[in-house]
Computed example of a mutant assay.
Amino acid sequence: MLPWSADFAGRLEEHVVSSELLRGNPLKDPHERPLLVYVPPGYDDDPSRRYPTVYVITGFTGHVGIWRNRMPYRRPFPETADAVFASGEAPPAIVVFVDAWTAHGGSQFLDSPGTGRYHSYICDELVPWVDAHYRTLDAPERRAISGKSSGGYGAMITPMLRPDLFGALATHAGDALFEYCYLPEFPKCVRHLRGYGGDIWRWWEDFHGRASFTKPEDMELLNLLGMAVCYSAREDGTPDLPFDPVTGIIRPEVWERWLAWDPVRMVPGHAEAMRSQRAIWIDGGTRDEWFLDVGAQAFHRALLDAGVSEDVIHFELFDAAHGGIDYRYPLALSWLCRRIAP
């Protein structure tokens, strides 16, 4: 295995999609977005054959370019996905690598007045674009979505909101059970903001005036701001923090807006959508720093309580922290493709 490149049995194609829904978004982020589409071996051999599709979305701060990052002694996901299909381990599928990056780190794959219409972009623009340009099987039972961390969050909530499009999902350490994954970060952020007079925008200005992530508070404050613009932005796009930045006292009305987007709490209201899923992969590391293994357990239980059959669920906890779990992606991909294959 060469450390810098590999030959594909299939093919990875690059595109730029111009989005009308993202044009003029609140953060002035590009409305033209890169898109990577992988087609499996044999795609060109039979022009009449159509394929299931798996959409892959990134974690917080991620963009489509991260799929080409190479870690020592590990191949990036497009290559391990190619190996899954080249080996015959799973039936062939088209894999779509989506970009939903924003200036504040991510969109959580939601529509928000603070970031833009990223949920609608994926569902109402990207899916039709892919179906028009590739030989897909255009049916929810043949379309899956997969991601890790914030991408895992998007993979949980997108089929809830659009079961007419997505009939399967894989979530790796996805954001869930917000009182455990987000709430413990709030007092840390209060401490960080003391150096900025309790004003997160003063930190944001400082962050942009120097090399990023050179101060210990950077990641935690970026995450706070990034989530607030997604979960609790006002109609004018201004994000409300879920706590007083000086005293740390929780602002219940804002915190409740965050909790309304917690996948665990969303399941009962979207039980029918989740019961319609053909395949649900849930996993997480037992040493996850944000307790997303606990969130995974809670999401699993919420699904069972909502009447989702255990037969369609793969639930697994494994020995790992939050990072370095990319080796799990091809495992879930293979399992999903076997479930959504015609």
Rank of each mutant, 00 (worst) to 15 (best):
T58S: 15
V37I: 08
V64Y: 06
M71T: 11
P216H: 09
A81W: 02
D29G: 15
T171H: 02
A139L: 13
H119L: 06
Y153F: 15
G295T: 03
L183G: 01
R301L: 15
R74V: 09
S120P: 05
A306K: 04
P26D: 13
D293T: 02
N69V: 07
P41F: 00
H133T: 00
I250C: 02
E256I: 02
A144V: 15
V84M: 10
L110E: 01
A6F: 13
C123Q: 03
E289L: 12
R328E: 13
A93F: 05
P242A: 10
D218I: 11
A211E: 09
H270D: 12
H322N: 11
G195T: 09
A296Q: 01
L241V: 00
D111S: 09
P78Y: 05
D236H: 06
E253I: 02
R68H: 08
G154R: 02
R194L: 14
I66F: 08
W201T: 14
F109H: 05
G174L: 02
D305K: 03
D124I: 09
C189L: 13
N69K: 09
D283I: 14
I66T: 14
C189D: 15
L161D: 02
A83V: 04
K28G: 14
D305A: 14
L110P: 00
G65T: 04
A233M: 07
H300T: 11
Q108V: 01
E205S: 15
G285Y: 04
W261K: 03
L259I: 09
T158V: 12
T158W: 03
G198R: 00
R74F: 13
Y329H: 03
P128S: 03
Q297T: 11
P187H: 13
V229R: 06
Y55E: 01
R191L: 05
A306S: 07
R49M: 11
Y196C: 06
C230W: 07
D236M: 12
S309Y: 12
D46T: 06
G237E: 08
L126N: 02
M156I: 04
I325M: 08
N223T: 13
H208F: 01
D305L: 09
P91D: 08
L2T: 08
W258M: 07
E272Q: 14
P239E: 00
P187A: 06
L165H: 10
Y329Q: 06
